[in-house]
Simulated scan of single mutants.
Amino acid sequence: MDSYTLWYSLPFPSGGSTKDLKATYADLAEADEYATTVIRFVERGIFKPAPVDLLAMLEELMHRIDRIGDTASGDDKAVARRQHAYASLLDLVYRQFLEEGGPQE
């Protein structure tokens, strides 16, 4: 629940000044939208996973952000770090959601 609370209250990271960071910003926004299913689970107990493989999407996105961050400088390097941190938190929140709401054995 702590990771959910952090994610829910954390401001969405910016897009930076490069084309690549703006693209990862858009993809992160899409992933964030898919993750809203977690909110329905927490607030209403409705377990309905995203219609895409969100964990694979986030993993690919974090790799892209890492590559961009390796060559970025100044403010864009900081933007890449914030985008990666946000994606990592989203990954954690969604994994916990799947563990909590998935089939109980």
Rank of each mutant, 00 (worst) to 15 (best):
R82S: 14
D32G: 00
E43V: 09
E100M: 09
G45C: 04
F12Q: 03
S88F: 10
H84L: 14
K48L: 12
L89Q: 07
Y94I: 08
I65P: 02
G102M: 11
K22A: 06
K22C: 02
A29L: 15
T36M: 11
A85N: 13
L61G: 06
A29H: 12
D32L: 00
I68K: 03
I68N: 02
R44M: 13
G69C: 07
A23D: 13
V38W: 02
L89G: 09
F41Q: 02
L10H: 08
P11S: 14
L92M: 13
P103H: 09
T71G: 07
V38K: 01
V52E: 07
L61P: 05
Y4W: 14
L92T: 15
K19N: 05
P11F: 09
K19I: 13
I46Y: 11
G45N: 06
D66F: 12
F47N: 04
E33M: 11
R64W: 04
T5L: 13
P51Y: 02
R64F: 01
D27W: 07
A29I: 08
E60M: 03
E105C: 00
Y94K: 09
F41T: 01
L10N: 09
G69A: 09
F97T: 01
Q83S: 08
P49I: 03
L6E: 14
R82M: 10
S3M: 04
L28I: 08
Y86N: 04
T71M: 04
L92C: 03
V93R: 03
E43I: 07
I68C: 04
L10E: 10
D75Y: 15
T37G: 11
H63C: 00
A26R: 15
K48A: 13
P11R: 12
I46S: 09
E105R: 11
V38C: 02
F41N: 02
I39S: 06
A85G: 13
E59D: 14
E30Q: 12
Y4P: 03
V52W: 05
H63S: 14
D2P: 08
S9P: 00
L98I: 03
G69T: 08
A87N: 08
D2E: 13
L61M: 07
T71E: 15
L61F: 03
F12K: 08
S14C: 00
T36Q: 10
D75A: 15
D91Y: 14
T18W: 08
F41W: 11
L89N: 10
R82I: 00
V42A: 04
S73E: 14
A35N: 06
L58S: 02
K48M: 06
E59W: 02
A56L: 10
V52D: 01
I46F: 10
T37K: 09
P103T: 11
D20E: 15
E60F: 10
K22N: 13
S88V: 01
L21V: 09
R67S: 12
K48D: 12
R82C: 01
E59L: 04
A26E: 13
L90E: 01
M1K: 09
A23N: 13
P49M: 04
V42N: 05
I65D: 01
G16H: 07
Y4Q: 02
D2W: 07
K77P: 00
A50N: 05
